[in-house]
């Protein structure tokens, strides 16, 4: 737990100290992204390695892995983000997931200080499979989804499709790619390379991004042939942090607050670092819905048995692009 705190604080310090070099400075430098829409921010966000076990480790170093972040704004002031990642040398033919970390949620609001509740990338209003479908491709049609077949270096794009009120008859919706693909997932190719692209219905450089509550746990007792018995705790899915109407005079008192489309309004925080996680899961790779599982990178105290995934401790310099007036 202490290591986690140190890592996150170091990451925070790094991103705060990042230069403000690549942010577009004026609207004249922006160019149109669509009808009535213009790009207002663009910057390259390199992934950094971070010390993991204390300050005596080598300092963070910029890697060849990065994201190109663009933020667009419509004439009505509605913003969305596009993140184009370039990953090289990750574990080959393996499922990975991308996550944001709400550092302020750790320090201010988390019931578990030192735990980083991750926010998955993707449209928060799109469905999640919670990993029950597995992840990957079925190029040979045998019904088995793996990252080792089919398209290499697949570029998942999370769409921002509008709700469809007419289709409400028990229909399971896809996630923008397929019902078997969690929104924040991608596969690496045989060289460990990938170029995922994710579009989000909000500006990731402000504090208005989805936050999540700490996770649920599943505890198991495992017996080994030698008679040794150990307890193991897994992280299960979590959901977005929700807000409730606390006005006793409101008809919806006690109910979740909703927006004009009837969708819940969720607690938001700023994003500080991004992380990328590799999912091992016996070679098949399963994402985990809202939460990638237990692990040193994003979860609570690592367990004795290890986990089904591990995460690259990297930070993204999103701080450099934040609006100064938001606070």
């Amino acid at each position: 737990m202490k290591r986690m705190i140190v890592v996150m604080l170091v990451g925070f310090a790094l991103v705060m100290a990042a230069p403000v070099g690549s942010l577009l400075g004026s609207s004249s430098e922006a160019w149109a992204a669509g009808p009535g829409e213009k790009m207002i921010k663009m910057f390259k966000a390199p992934f950094l390695s971070l010390p993991l076990r204390g300050f005596f480790y080598p300092p963070a170093v910029e890697t060849d892995n990065f994201a190109t972040v663009k933020v667009f704004e419509s004439g009505q002031g509605v913003r969305h983000s596009e993140l184009r990642y370039t990953f090289r040398g990750l574990t080959a033919n393996t499922v990975h997931t991308l996550w944001f970390v709400n550092l302020f949620m750790i320090t201010r609001h988390s019931a578990f200080p030192g735990v980083a509740p991750p926010s998955p990338q993707g449209n928060p209003y799109l469905p999640w499979t919670s990993g029950t479908a597995g992840v990957g491709y079925d190029a040979d049609g045998d019904g088995v989804l793996t990252c080792g077949e089919g398209v290499r270096g697949f570029d998942p794009v999370v769409t921002t499709e509008e709700p469809t009120p007419g289709a409400m008859n028990g229909v399971a919706f896809g996630t923008g790619q397929s019902p078997t693909f969690d929104q924040n997932s991608f596969c690496t190719n045989e060289w460990g390379h990938a170029n995922p692209v994710i579009r989000l219905p909000y500006d990731i450089t402000t504090k208005n991004v989805p936050a999540q509550t700490p996770p649920l746990f599943q505890t198991e007792v495992v017996e080994f042939p030698n008679g040794e018995t150990l307890k193991h705790r897994h992280v299960i899915d979590i959901s977005y942090k929700r807000l409730y109407d606390e006005n006793p005079d409101s008809p919806r008192f006690g109910y979740q607050k909703v927006d004009n489309l009837g969708r819940p309004i969720f607690q938001t925080y700023r994003l500080i670092p991004m992380v990328v996680c590799t999912h091992y899961d016996g070679g098949l790779g399963m994402t985990h819905g809202h939460h990638p599982g237990n692990g040193p990178g994003t979860g609570p105290t690592p367990t004795a048995f290890g986990t089904d995934h591990e995460c690259l401790m990297a930070a993204m310099q999103t701080t450099q692009a934040r609006d100064r007036q938001e606070d």
């Binding site: 469905p127 999640w128 409400m168 919706f173 996630t175 019902p179 929700r242 969708r263």
Partner: peptide, 24 residues
């Protein structure tokens, strides 16, 4: 009551996009 592989919105879709065991 839904496929175990269904995508759930965890209520985030509201009435506009209910979970796969939802109907009106």
């Amino acid at each position: 009551i839904a496929k175990s592989t269904s995508g759930f919105t965890a209520g985030m879709g509201g009435t506009s996009r209910p979970d796969p065991n939802g109907f009106v």
